[in-house]
Nucleic acid binder design. Structure first.
Lengths: 317, 317
DNA sequence: TCAAAAGTGTTATCCTTACACCCATGT
DNA sequence: ACATGGGTGTAAGGATAACACTTTTGA
């Protein structure tokens, strides 16, 4: 503290930095995110000089706020909070981290902490049964109106193209990792309650999703984009699965993350061709139908998540 | 300023944030990076509350420091400077950005600003003629010794694996986007002058590369990794090329970035199958051999760099 | 018996790679 | 003439997607 008092630079150089964590776990094949404040916020806390690193700071805050240990961790993105910056007169930063936890601890510290299905915040991102009707019926006309609002035909064309790319319309297909693009589009158009220029058109929470404080929903969207992109080329799914599992459980978990369904037979073959899993000698019949073999990830896969090395997934359906 | 004086929180929450820019351009088919301080630093400056966004801040600093305008910009990574944090008693952050410039302005503002070939800082990353002899002769034995230092056979095995993945030895191939992994390995082993535990084994600057202040070389390595990965699935190369160019020039530019050579015929076909380029009616004979057709990127490609959409490149050789 | 899920096998198609070869120009 | 780079064709191999089909269990 005495050291900072010695600083001769103006307070323009000083600022507040907060660490924000998006911790993901899979429970019953659906993706969940760790929240605090009754789901209105992600775990967060101020960066302090006692932290040895940003990562250590995030781990510490999540641990003290929720008691949930973080497993695999990677940096996501750094945001400025323009509102708080303007109000306080110094820059307010959020450095966000993505974490993957193997099991969701049930004995969370605070009453207001909890695991939530991530589709509560992004209902339109669950594309497993195809595009929801209300997207076509309620969202699409709003976007179309937004396109028509623009008088310059060149910009109007760009808007049309952007909308089509985001939602897989026209010549384009649905791309599950465009979570952030879609969120930012809805935000810009004014359909997201967090937006300063929000226009309420009477969408329910099951449609437009639950809101979060301090733009944390954008942070979550960033995390979903990153994770959905990453599972396609790196076996990070191993950080989320239990020790042993069936191939179908693995498929359902990935489908839960990606928000799309996959072709069963090809999924199995593709996974088995990749030298990621090894058979156990156990079978399970915790489900309807023929008993299934249990598999586990090979030992080196965890290491290779930290280093490098690839993995592939089949296309949808 | 008066607002920050009102702050009641301790100075632990206060910190300094610097913006660091890695601006890349291609000159004569080799990748260059914009530097200041005679190549010892990347352009940087403090984040201030007057900046409307992080990106705007980076653009402003690069412009005022070098007069070079930035084109395409994306966030790279946020680092903590542990040394300066310890000394000052408050967190010191670097938020880094990658920028791609179409042409390298020659009339740079400062005398000490300049464009440098990025292989000056990472000589081992130029793999276009295969692996350099001195890597095999001087680096490899050092890495091998580092592996043998470890007594625990499990950890020793991990080290061996890590070294092999990084450098494409053993069962692995050279992966050009592992720039950061390789740098961090060399840093950890103590071969990089910037490392606190640096052991001088008499490598020349042509071998271990030029040093930079404040760990900026790590920032550059991060940028190279990102860019090398990105050109494989997104046509960001369009942000670096001049208006019109031949296919061979495009190939050489990409080879300059990736640091590997590509198969000529397949490169041409792959590019032409992707609906990225359009023919002009012009030919050039600014080179030996048969005159070549000039191409340009389609108009929508620039837009799609900002949004999404893919592109592919052939494997090496 | 039927539904649900585990599995196996096969084929068509596309993409990539590798190789062979001809064309046009400057020196 | 030949070196250099431009440009076309094609065949082999591998990966993927799509489809058909059998097996084993619980309800």
């Amino acid at each position: 503290m005495s050291a900072s008092a010695v600083e001769t630079t103006s307070s323009q150089n000083e600022g507040t930095t907060e660490l924000v964590a998006v911790l993901i776990a899979i429970t019953r094949f659906s993706a969940r995110v760790l929240t605090v404040m009754d789901g209105q916020s992600l775990p967060f806390g101020a960066l302090s000089p006692v932290h040895q690193s940003l990562q250590a700071g995030v781990r510490q805050w999540v641990k003290t706020q929720t008691r949930q240990p973080m497993g695999y961790v990677e940096q996501l993105y750094t945001f400025v909070d323009t509102t708080r910056t303007r109000l306080s007169g110094h820059p307010v930063l959020y450095v966000s981290y993505l974490g993957l936890a193997k099991e969701a601890a049930e004995n969370l510290l605070q009453e207001h902490a909890g695991w939530r299905d991530w589709y509560c915040y992004f209902p339109w991102e669950d594309y497993r049964q195809g595009q929801a009707d209300w997207v076509e019926q309620k969202i699409r006309p709003q976007l179309q109106a937004w396109i028509q609002q623009e008088s310059d035909p060149a910009i109007r064309n760009n808007r049309q193209r952007r909308v089509d790319i985001c939602w897989g319309w026209g010549e384009f297909g649905w791309v599950e990792e465009h979570v952030l693009l879609r969120y930012e589009l809805l935000y810009e158009v004014g359909l997201i309650p967090e937006a300063p220029h929000f226009r309420d058109i009477g969408l329910s929470k099951n449609e437009i999703g639950l809101s979060m404080q301090r733009d944390h929903r954008r942070v979550l969207a960033t995390a979903m984009s990153r994770l959905r992109a990453k599972i396609k080329y790196r076996p990070v799914i191993s950080e989320l699965m239990p020790q042993e599992f069936t191939l179908f459980q693995l498929q359902q978990s990935i489908e839960g993350l990606a928000g799309v369904e996959m072709h069963k037979q090809n999924f199995r073959r593709l996974i088995q061709h990749q030298d990621l899993l090894e058979e156990t000698d156990k079978m399970t019949n915790q489900h309807r139908g023929r008993p299934a073999r249990l598999y586990r990830f090979k030992e080196n896969v965890l290491l290779e998540n930290i280093l490098a090395a690839g993995s592939k997934l089949p296309k949808t359906h």
